[in-house]
Write a protein that binds this DNA or RNA. Structure first.
Lengths: 331, 331
DNA sequence: ATCCACAGGTCAAAGGTCAC
DNA sequence: AGTGACCTTTGACCTGTGGA
């Protein structure tokens, strides 16, 4: 039994080991394993975004990890799959965290952008005074921030390249915010979207009834879908993740696609498992019904985009924070 | 040739295999085999003592092993049966180990209990100074500890559930200690039990001759039985195991009973084999004679128990370590 | 002989551990 | 804290053997 030494596909060291589907030394195996299993974030690459040369890979977590992904190391079996209840509970905590930020904080910087919220270690907030007045602009600003703060806690986001993180968050935070607002309205038997203080999510009514139509679709469509489905909190939480864990986005890098589609598998399996447990043989039907919410979110996003285009055309200028513009322009 | 897939009775995986008397997948077969054949200890169950769900069984050695036993996997054919000489030599080493601890060590913690000695990874001892004074209390404390340290090295103990381990050791360590002390006295032609320094195994003489009687029985009964039988070291060692490998104990769990009765079979076969080899056609008679020692141990235990009850009644208070009390209360 | 069911063995890959 | 050399455990696959 002769062990033939080959080169580690990650770091080029000589090795006879084969792990996670590739020729790879024990050190790289353990490195990859740890970061996926322990869900520990990566230190960013100091040499910009280029890939470090193999002999210095050990010094750069970021490039080493992405080399692992690019080399085809099997990711999914390593992703922790906690019991469904624990997973849902964790999602619930994240949702509360989002709502907590939305209702009680305001950033020191009044014009943050997506990149800053994603990559700065500490975005500074102050607690809002109870009497502090929130208007349309500040509500959509806080909605964006609170949502991005939560999104960046998901491994497929924080393990991705900075460019991919931007694509993922920019293209989804509006949808996620709307989705959460819709579920809050649905839970309290309201038929229209509103901000936590009850104010309207649209800044003004168009005089023309033609434009009233689109406003009402924005306010009601998601909620009435929830009513149709009689969706519950657990289903909402499990769907929420699937909204932004979407590998079909254009311009994602190769490793970004691997990350997103792998985690999407994991999350959709969780939803499927939930449906099977709760609805037994009707589980698959329920699963399909729930997934149909995602296309409704798509229509909602279209409406939102159109609404902003129309209001621009009408010259109605109501201040849109630049971070929100980043989200709208990408729709 | 149709292989019908069934569910593994241990882990529920689909399989067509049948091993060790049950429908069971190859993985569970190898798992069970290894732990019995290699006599490798089990990592304790993290979820308390409940049985892990089948799909996570592979992650918990303890629950998986006990599921194997409970499912009726045949245990005995897998138990290693080394040549009799090797087995006896191994027992002899364990006995020396016990005597070594008894004579030369003292634990850092002066009031250990049975559970701690059984389940803690490392019970800390210090070497005793030759001049260190041992009194009655410290001798019975060390006897208990040394005996339990040896008992926990037997597979039917360390493979058992924690609750069964407690029952097994608590109910036997006093008997085992007495049995060993008796053989040491017999070997050096003494007629009464004593601690290694020659001091009396009972803390004081009752003045009344009625109570002197019981003290003398405790001191002499076992030794005179050994003299009657002209027992030798090998026989002593083989009997020693049978004293604490006793499936008749109340409250043993189902798997505890399986373990203890199976190992008792193995050990009594070894004694029978020894007798047959050494005494040829008189072997069975010798075997029966030797087994009668076990009932003598029972009488001895009764005397010890009564002695302690009497001394309590007389208000003679001489400190009994709590670990020893655990052993007396169960007699 | 030759099937085949089950016992037992092998080894690559996965999963820990621990000193640095 | 993170790393990686080294160790243990697992289970898919293989070989051996005895009965029909």
């Amino acid at each position: 039994m002769v062990h033939v030494a080959r080169n580690c596909v990650i770091c080029s060291r000589l090795t006879s080991d084969f792990s996670y589907g590739v020729d790879c030394c024990n050190a790289c195996k353990m490195f990859f394993r740890r970061h996926v299993v322990k869900e520990s974030p990566l230190k960013p690459c100091l040499s910009g975004n280029e890939v470090c040369p193999p002999d210095t890979l050990a010094g750069c977590q970021f490039c080493r990890f992405h080399k692992c992904l690019q080399s085809g190391m099997t990711l999914e079996p390593l992703i922790p799959k906690p019991p469904l209840n624990d997973f849902i509970e964790n999602l619930s905590k994240l949702d509360s965290y989002r709502y907590q930020i939305l209702c009680n904080y305001y950033p020191i910087d009044p014009d943050l952008n997506v990149a800053t919220v994603l990559f700065f270690k500490k975005v500074m907030y102050t607690e809002r005074e109870p009497e502090s007045q929130m208007n349309f602009t500040s509500w959509i600003y806080m909605s964006a921030l609170a949502t991005i703060e939560v999104m960046k806690k998901f491994p497929f986001v924080y393990l991705a390249k900075p460019g991919d993180q931007l694509i993922l968050t920019r293209s989804s935070f509006m949808n996620v915010s709307s989705f959460c607002a819709a579920f809050r309205a649905y839970s309290s038997n309201q038929e229209v979207l509103s901000f936590p203080d009850g104010s309207d999510v649209l800044p003004y009514e168009f005089v023309s009834s033609r434009y009233e139509e689109i406003g009402n679709r924005i306010r009601r469509r998601l909620i009435s879908k929830f009513v149709d489905l009689k969706i519950n909190k657990d289903e909402f939480l499990l769907l929420l993740v699937l909204i932004f864990c979407n590998p079909a986005l254009p311009n994602l890098s190769e490793t970004g696609q691997i990350l997103v589609s792998t985690y999407q598998n994991v999350y959709s399996s969780a939803l499927f498992q939930y449906c099977s447990q709760k609805y037994e043989k009707c589980g698959p039907i329920r699963y399909t019904e729930l997934l149909s919410v995602i296309s409704v979110i798509g229509k909602h996003a279209e409406d939102v985009n159109n609404y902003f285009v129309i209001s621009q055309l009408h010259g109605i200028d109501c201040f849109i924070p630049s971070i929100v513009e980043e989200g709208i322009n990408l729709l």
